[in-house]
Design a binder for these strands. Structure first.
Lengths: 201, 201
DNA sequence: CATTTCATGTAATCGGTTACATGATTAG
DNA sequence: CTAATCATGTAACCGATTACATGAAATG
């Protein structure tokens, strides 16, 4: 009975709980209020997902009955959950994932530093750079060749996708430079720059 | 018994079939080989979706038994299907959609010109411009404020999202200009430029 | 003749969507 | 005292994923 896999939402919750213990309501707020859109903020998705994670032992809950505040079930990650998260984060990123599930890749990246350290994050960036460099030219060539025969809006939609990937390429370079700069101004866990927006605008 | 809604995949199929009649296999190839990633190319998704569309009368099929080629079930759109597609495409785009489902917005745009004409496509672009201009500054401010307290990889992931939206803003301007240029070199349905990549690279 | 590619399906399973339910606590 | 917000759930439904099945035509 090989333990059935954790959904993407499950890993998103696991990664957030890994940052600091929180309740289902807290997590919902993260998905509604912060820039982590694209995830469901509906209770019908989150509470069952939390229950599944708890059942498999990845997280543990404790009901807090703080005075003057109503009952909250606060989750924290377990050792097993940490191991599962690390294993997920360690999966090499594939071309297919970049094409069909870029959001998942970025989610992994966002959680990576906390769970595996900055070196792992840089390694992911390097792999991402290689894959993008291999993938984007083909896309551009496709646009050159097939574009003229497409309806204008179709061609533009494709161009939008290409621009997205090109922006991502520039971001990867910037991110790698940023990690390099942070590493050279050494401390145990390095300092974070205050407003590094990469010289745009 | 209000007719249950069509899934996003369903509309993707409907829009493609609207461009030219094709078989399930053709559609799978579109999703695997072209830049329309992010959609499932698995038979277990596509064939049932086609069957649902046919059952509701949005498309109709005909088995072609061309000599020397094996049996293919070719779908074409019906009048009812065209009406449904147009109605879906006419839905105004919302802020929420831009945050959580940008892909769906781009899909609508890609099909729009064919189904509703270039004016509708330009209208969508204008609305998209307004929404992006209203949304992006808040994101950047959020990064300024909360960035320093986030792990570096989290901050960079957020920056990646912002860059994506900024690239989209530039694309919207380019797309509107492109439609303007196409309209001024008038013909009934206007000409498509041959390699308009917007002066990048 | 065997293998690959073309082409269409089916079945089990499971997670997300939508909608509803419930109580406690704070605000007006 | 009512209304809104906090906070956690439950249940029905449905579509996508995964894996399997089939069979014909082209390829070597």
């Amino acid at each position: 009975m090989k333990t059935q896999p954790v959904s993407t939402l499950g890993y998103a919750l696991l990664g957030l709980i890994n940052q600091y213990p929180c309740s289902g309501y807290d997590l919902r707020k993260v998905f509604t209020e912060t820039a982590m859109g694209s995830f469901s903020n509906s209770p019908g998705a989150i509470y069952p997902a939390l229950a599944r994670l708890e059942k498999r032992g990845s997280i543990a809950s404790e009901v807090k009955d703080s005075v003057g505040l109503r009952r909250r079930r606060v989750y924290r990650i377990t050792a097993a959950g940490e191991a599962e998260l690390k294993e997920w984060l360690s999966q090499p990123i594939t071309r297919t994932e970049i094409i069909r599930n870029l959001g998942k890749v970025m989610l992994r990246f966002a959680f990576m530093e906390r769970a595996l350290g900055p070196d792992a994050a840089v390694a992911l960036l390097r792999k991402l750079r290689v894959e993008l460099n291999a993938y984007v030219p083909g896309l551009k060539q496709y646009l050159q060749e097939k574009g003229p025969s497409m309806p204008l809006s179709g061609m533009l939609a494709l161009d939008s996708g290409i621009r997205h990937y090109e922006a991502l390429q520039q971001w990867v370079e910037y991110a790698i430079r940023t990690y390099g700069a942070a590493a050279s101004s050494k401390s145990k866990s390095f300092r974070k720059p205050h407003k590094g927006n990469g010289g745009k605008s």
